[in-house]
Design a binder for these strands. Structure first.
Lengths: 351, 351
DNA sequence: ATTGGCACTCAATAAAGGTGAGTGCCAATT
DNA sequence: AATTGGCACTCACCTTTATTGAGTGCCAAT
């Protein structure tokens, strides 16, 4: 079951390659006849059968039943995408769409959604984009508004124009002007710092420097602590075009589809999966069961992290059937990630 | 094809009622035998067949084919829910869940999502809740932050704690302090007013009173006008538990399901449908094709508007198969709407 | 008006046969 | 030693043909 490319000669690999390509384009188990008729292959069906038997022994392909052709296994796909794939350049129309959609126009806040939609529409599969990680994002403005019952509404702006809000519970009741001062104070010292550093600084202040602060400052720091409490930083993503998958996976049964959609609305598993891609750079691919989540059994996920200022802040990708056109999808995801990163890049603020 | 209840005697109606109930619970066409065996009916199958023939003539039921039982038509369901239904009181456990979930705790902002989730989970169908209408919501705080290139980030808070934001393009470049003053000015005169009245007032100011304002005030008004420009008030809704529908509608084919899900992500049709319920008070029901949208062919929608301060601000409801248990769903939706309205009711602000 | 009886219809299920794509293996060929 | 043609065999898939049974409509009897 060792499936390294070493064990195989060029002919076998070439054969595997055409087999996978064929299966991806037709969706039917491919037999020795069709392969032998392929323009690049000048072997008789019988020979091909021998080679295919070898490939099957190595666990790269298998037949659904005796009298059917072969289809790639997960290992087969893996070998294919890792070593055999010849990536195609991006279609110029698609590239134009991407450029158009992700040009850094005004509506930066909707950029994530746009990216997801572009991924879905142009690939006819599902597109997913994580929201940029908060910790790597800088604080631009913070403000407190009083609510009833010792509750305070915190509004803070990050990264030029993303607005977040949260309700915190305070020990005592504040007047509007007290809250305003607290906001002003925090703005003056933390504006421009990354959220993660603000959080660290706030914790430090609370621990060792209480004596040299007046009550107002202390209150402000306490509220900041509540605001940037870790609990809230739930990562999230924008998923589009799920319905495209329905057409695709007709084959694989209803309950499978239900499991997949359930996973989408639970979000948790998807986030875990995407988090893994966060660590690696460049395009990553999860094929079928490789993901480790049952719901993604028949699906592949092609992802790439995207960066702002050379810092990875999120992941985007495409979810589709295992037999997707990797040679087109891979460069597509790659380019989209780069364009999104570029579009999110903070412009030099010149008010 | 006149299907008014007038044309039928009590026996026929009673028969129709049990037939519909039976079909809802079993999901199978119901024949004369089973009906005759029903405890409440003391008629022979033959008699029942005669009655059913009448009901079929009136377009209230029909058989999928000669040797199958009868199933209700849309008119049949309609008559059933309008005149025959005996609503069941709400299950006490479910009521407790609702109370618990919609108690006006801190996280008011998530209330809409919670309501949708409760609807979906407790009915095992899809739950939908529209966001409260903006116009009927009052302004609590507004604030401007400078961005690059004559762009300004507007943040405004409505209704206690809902935060909205929008980017507007201004004629000239403002300094942060100018923007702050503009915000303060607008807060001082419009705070507490409904968004719709603010918009009207702003327009009026722009038209007829320019001379008695200084430049700062004028700028503020202009920005307010841009902020509350009608274009932005896209209604929206929160939909949960769509996946529940997959289990339900196994029967009615894949492409139908796809159409439905597409309609969900388009949102437009759903919004139109929900808007209709906005006008009427109390629980409304759309059965199958009645909605007028093909995608909802095999679905029913049970809705109720919800009100804050005796003013209708939104709609919530449940989407499921036409053969849903109306007698349970109707009171359920009703109660949920009332509880949500109560929970959203602005508490007297006592800072 | 209600009922029992009877012929009839038709989906659904199962069984039976036919077709064809594909395989594995072996002996002949290069 | 690698390649190829030939051949028997397998098995999903399709079509055809019964078989069954739930249900109907109609009519004559109660």
């Amino acid at each position: 079951m060792n499936s390294g490319a070493r064990d195989l000669n060029d002919r076998s690999l070439q054969l595997l390659k055409t087999l996978v390509e064929r299966y991806i384009s037709d969706g039917q188990p491919v037999g020795s006849r069709v392969l032998s008729k392929d323009s690049d292959i000048k072997l008789s069906p019988a020979t091909i059968r021998n080679v295919m038997a070898d490939l099957e022994d190595l666990g790269l392909i298998h037949s659904p039943h005796t009298s059917a052709g072969r289809i790639p296994t997960v290992s087969g796909y893996r070998l294919f995408v890792d070593s055999l794939l010849t990536v195609k350049p991006l279609d110029s129309k698609e590239l134009a769409c991407l450029h158009q959609g992700l040009s850094d126009k005004d509506d930066n806040g909707k950029m994530i959604g746009t990216a997801s939609r572009l991924l879905a529409e142009l690939t006819h599969m599902a597109g997913v984009v994580t929201l940029p990680r908060r910790e790597l994002v800088s604080l631009r403005h913070i403000e407190f508004l009083p609510l009833s019952h010792k509750r305070v509404l915190v509004i803070f702006v990050t990264n030029e124009q993303e607005v977040h809000n949260k309700i915190i519970h305070t020990d005592k009741v504040f007047t509007p002007s007290e809250l305003q001062q607290a906001g002003a104070y925090l703005n003056s010292i933390y504006c421009g710092h990354s959220l993660i550093s603000v959080r660290a600084a706030v914790l430090k202040e609370l621990q060792d420097a209480q004596e040299r602060m007046n009550q107002g400052m202390l209150d402000a720091i306490k509220m900041a602590q509540l605001t940037f409490d870790s609990g809230d930083q739930k990562d999230d993503y924008v998923l589009t075009g799920e319905t495209n998958l329905m057409g695709f996976l007709e084959l694989s049964g209803r309950d499978h589809l239900k499991k997949l959609f359930d996973a989408f609305s639970q979000k948790q598993d998807v986030i875990h999966l995407l988090d893994q891609s966060m660590k690696a750079d460049g395009v990553q691919i999860f094929i079928g069961e490789e993901s480790g989540y049952q719901a993604f059994d028949q699906c592949s996920l092609v992802t790439s992290s995207y960066s702002v200022n050379d810092e990875v802040v999120g992941v985007l990708g495409v979810i589709g059937p295992t037999r997707m056109a990797y040679e087109k999808i891979i460069p597509f995801v790659d380019v989209t990630a780069k364009l999104l990163g570029a579009a999110l890049n903070p412009k030099t603020t010149t008010p």
